[in-house]
C-alpha cells in the first residue's frame, strides 16, 4: 500500500542556512569596510597598521577593523592638526600616553626629563632640554584623513547604508534559495 508524499519544511537546515547567510554578509562587510578605510588613509604607515578581526560564536558574528597607532594618527591627525572631536580624545588626554608638557596646547612639544612610554608602547628617554617647546618644525603634525570617521558614515548612516544594503542582498539570496529547505517525499 502506497503512502501519499508529504511536503515538510526542514527548519534546522533553514536556520543553519540563515546563519551562514548572515555570516557571509558580515565577511563581505568586513572586507568592504577594510578597503574603504585603507583607501582613505593618507600614509603608507597607516595603511600597514590596519588589521581585520573575526570572531564567531554560536549566534554572534563579530567583525572588526582595528587601527593601531599609525592608522589612528592618520585618521585623527596629530599635534596642532589633531581632530579634537575624536571620541577618545579625553581618554587620551588623561592617559599616561599624553605628554604632560603640552600645557594649554595640542601642538607637539618636548617632554620633561626622564623615561616615558611612547604611542607605540616603547620605552623612551627624554633629556628634557626642549620641555614645553614647540617642536613641530622637527615632527610635522599630520592632518586628519578622517578615514575611519567617514567610512563609518557611509557604512552606518540611514536606511540605505552599506550595512543595510549588504545584509539585504545576502538575505534576499537566502530567501530566493528557500526551496532547498522543503522536502517532498
Amino acid at each position: 500500500m502506497s503512502t501519499k508524499p508529504k511536503l515538510t519544511f526542514n527548519s534546522a537546515r533553514a536556520a543553519a542556512g540563515y546563519k551562514k547567510a548572515v555570516q557571509n554578509a558580515a565577511d563581505q562587510l568586513l572586507k568592504d569596510l577594510y578597503e574603504e578605510i585603507s583607501q582613505r588613509l593618507n600614509t603608507s604607515e597607516g595603511k600597514k597598521d590596519l588589521q581585520k578581526m573575526t570572531e564567531n560564536e554560536e549566534m554572534i558574528f563579530r567583525r572588526k577593523v582595528i587601527g593601531c597607532a599609525d592608522a589612528i594618527m592618520d585618521s585623527y591627525g596629530t599635534g596642532s592638526e589633531m581632530d579634537k572631536t575624536n571620541p577618545f580624545y579625553n581618554a587620551y588626554r588623561h592617559s599616561s600616553l599624553w605628554n604632560v608638557s603640552r600645557r594649554g596646547t595640542v601642538a607637539i612639544v618636548g617632554r620633561h626629563k626622564g623615561f616615558y612610554i611612547d604611542i607605540y608602547g616603547r620605552k623612551r628617554y627624554s633629556t628634557g632640554r626642549r620641555e614645553t617647546e614647540n617642536i613641530e618644525d622637527y615632527y610635522e603634525p599630520i592632518s586628519p584623513s578622517y578615514a575611519f570617521q567617514r567610512a563609518e558614515t557611509w557604512f552606518t548612516k540611514g536606511n540605505g547604508s552599506k550595512v543595510n544594503e549588504v545584509l539585504s542582498r545576502y538575505l534576499a539570496e537566502y530567501i530566493k534559495g528557500m526551496h532547498q529547505y522543503f522536502d517532498y517525499r
Binding site: 572631536t85 578622517y146 570617521q149 536606511n159
Partner: peptide, 10 residues
C-alpha cells in the same frame, strides 16, 4: 544611498 550625507571634517 545614504547620499547626500554630512561627512566628518575639519
Amino acid at each position: 544611498a545614504p547620499s547626500p550625507v554630512n561627512l566628518p571634517c575639519q
